[in-house]
Design a protein around this nucleic acid. Sequence first.
DNA 1: AATAGCGGTTGACATGGATCAATCGAAAGC
DNA 2: GCTTTCGATTGATCCATGTCAACCGCTATT
Lengths: 247, 247
Amino acid sequence: MPHGSAQPEHPLSLIKTACSNCNLRELCLPFGLSLEELERIDDLVSTRRRIKRGDHLYRAGETFDAIYAIRAGFFKTDVLLEDGREQVTGFQMAGELLGLDGISTEHHTCNAVALEDSEICAIPFAKLETLSREIHTLQHHFHKVMSREIVRDHGVMMLLGTMRAEERLAAFLLNLSQRFTARGFSHTEFYLRMTREEIGSYLGLKLETVSRAFSKFQEEGYIAVQQKHIRILNVAGLKALMNHRTC
Amino acid sequence: MPHGSAQPEHPLSLIKTACSNCNLRELCLPFGLSLEELERIDDLVSTRRRIKRGDHLYRAGETFDAIYAIRAGFFKTDVLLEDGREQVTGFQMAGELLGLDGISTEHHTCNAVALEDSEICAIPFAKLETLSREIHTLQHHFHKVMSREIVRDHGVMMLLGTMRAEERLAAFLLNLSQRFTARGFSHTEFYLRMTREEIGSYLGLKLETVSRAFSKFQEEGYIAVQQKHIRILNVAGLKALMNHRTC
DNA sequence: AATAGCGGTTGACATGGATCAATCGAAAGC
DNA sequence: GCTTTCGATTGATCCATGTCAACCGCTATT
């Protein structure tokens, strides 16, 4: 099978995708829908697409017409300033939605990049609005998802505005751990898909500071790190680190 | 007129509020609606309420059932950590919406405090969802407003994550200036409604740093400050300060 | 008009994290 | 299998911002 072309037409695009038999439905947009409703939204998802590691799902400035549900894989979203400074605005995993920022201006306002080979479902936004006029549960859940994104952003603002480096990294690890758990992965052991630099950008720190904080956590027995492989040895310890203003 | 009671029943609550003759309609939720549609949403806004300076519109933890449109005045929203640290997540002015964060969990996740005597319209959320199933324009605009909030939050993350103190303050002043303009106020001269400490909390800085940055801007002729009274003398200068990484 | 109190300004000093630089180690390409 | 390259680690030093403290000057209250 050839695999060098820039934008290959993956056979997956032709496969009929069905929310009704997707095992992520309880994490994703269809959450809370009845069986009957589930079947009605099956044709909401028009396309399934593979995105290779390093490729963009969309770029800032492109016109917006769909939001994307992650079926498998891992993404980052980032915003670039003219002078080259980058801010990673989030890391997204299976079951989470990408592209909500584009609704506002009908143009994407950030870049979405796959951090590992991934697979997404495209949800044409016009269709979603039509269907959510008919299915109250869908409408309400969509509003909740957007609101949850706002709450998450406030959490990041809190982190960036009030926490010190080690508190930020602890919060970050605990957040990842919790989201992996919700997806049936280990609470305490996982591979990071992003570089120290990307973590740093997200947390408002330089990569060296992130690296040092990892080493410190290891010295103190909170975690075991080997490159991107993380084992959390003392969840309570990390939590304590966040709450008390101990130095 | 007595005015010492804690929660006085203001006569305004009884006045029939009408979006159709509100002069903020082009900034607020009814944006883009036809005359006919405008009249249909008039009974969306159930209550008008006055909030005195320093009073809460809502508090974190309270159950959510309405979003609020600011008719007049000025608010801040903030999140408090258990250890007392505060993060101001935003400043809101006339025509802007408050409470979107509450949709997610059906509980408010932050506090909304009036920074001057203010007046709000309560929009019961269930009603809004019902009506937006019938009026496409309303549905679409509401989605845009939520998305805009997400984009705004990403801007703040960028600010907190990548900018230095003076860049942050410049960005803040330019943002305020632009929003005042949209409301028909002066581009270049305004009163701040918040303290240095609140600005600092929003920008992830200590109040002393904010104060010093104001003084620096004044020395360099970008602005004239006297307490809360600000005059911007050199908009281009402030913009340049943000873009170039000059130190 | 006098006074209390809070918000703002300014200075001196401390420090957390940035910066610069060298080295190491793992993964990828030849 | 060897080499190249990129990401991670660690050390030394610097600097922007935080911290502590004194003082100033509005504004509001009596």
